[in-house]
Design a protein around this nucleic acid. Structure first.
Length: 237
DNA sequence: AAATCGGCCAACCGCCACCAC
DNA sequence: AGTGGTGGCGGTTGGCCGATT
């Protein structure tokens, strides 16, 4: 049987009080982010270490940028999600001052719905094939159908525009079928992503080219070729 | 004015990777 | 090589609040 991450007996749960916040801030200000497990006791908090870490990272850290996401941030999230899937921490890492939790929430509450209303399956960033409901979204050349987000299962012929890592279960989180490519992403500290999608020309092929500059050293180029009459989608500038 | 609904978001839960021993 | 502890991550939940009926 799995041991709980910490002794939950006698620890507070739920919303943090101002006093608790202040204790955590004061402690980290003095001692820095050390061992989360021992931090609560040392800081005089009746909280699980994980809870402290989460509170600090998602809310109390001084460099957190709060408030609405800008259009550029939204665009970037969409780009990165197409490339990385639900790797919220990686995506958040490219958005200064944003946390993975914030990005995840924003995706689920805003972007996801927006893409769906544009007829784009948020799981694989493909257009659905039902006629569009007009939506004023300048990033999309050809707005398309509205369909439920379950559409990821509804069309076998619909190959992903970009092989996403989204829609993965916890179990296959580690075993995505994208060779070592993804590992290079995760392992990189200074990852410079430059994603371009070439709009199909006369041919019915869509070329997706991803360039990854890792630590300013190696460049990995990955090309994905998608065929057939997949509707043209330009999500990215 | 009250009840209901739906969206947002902070926080929790469980799993996994990594590291030290 | 195996094991246990810890941190980190993504999915999910639940409470709050504004909008709608």
């Amino acid at each position: 049987m799995r041991k709980p991450c910490c002794d939950k007996e006698g620890t507070n749960k739920g919303a943090w009080s101002k006093q608790e916040d202040q204790k955590l801030i004061d402690y980290i200000r003095i001692h820095g982010e050390g061992c989360w497990r021992s931090l609560p006791k040392a800081a005089g908090l009746d909280r699980c270490g994980k809870s402290c870490r989460l509170r600090w990272i998602n809310y109390l850290r001084p460099d957190i940028k709060r408030g609405n996401f800008g259009q550029d941030e939204e665009d970037l999230i969409i780009k990165l999600h197409a490339l990385l899937g639900n790797r919220w921490s990686l995506i958040a890492g490219r958005l200064p001052g944003r946390t993975d939790n914030e990005v995840k929430n924003y995706w689920n509450s805003h972007i996801r719905r927006k893409l769906i209303s544009m007829g784009i399956d948020p799981n694989n960033h493909r257009l659905n094939q039902i006629p569009p409901i007009p939506f004023s979204q300048p990033k999309c050349v050809s707005p398309a159908a509205t369909s439920s987000h379950e559409s990821m299962n509804n069309n076998e012929s619909s190959k992903p525009l970009i092989k996403p890592f989204a829609n993965t279960t916890t179990a296959d989180r580690v075993s995505d079928t994208t060779s070592g490519f993804e590992d290079e992403i995760s392992g990189s500290l200074d990852l410079n992503l430059d994603l371009t999608i070439a709009v199909p020309s006369a041919s019915s092929l869509t070329l997706v080219q991803e360039k990854l500059q890792i630590n300013s050293k190696s460049i990995v180029t990955k090309e994905v070729t998608i065929s057939e009459q997949a509707p043209t989608l330009v999500l990215f500038r």
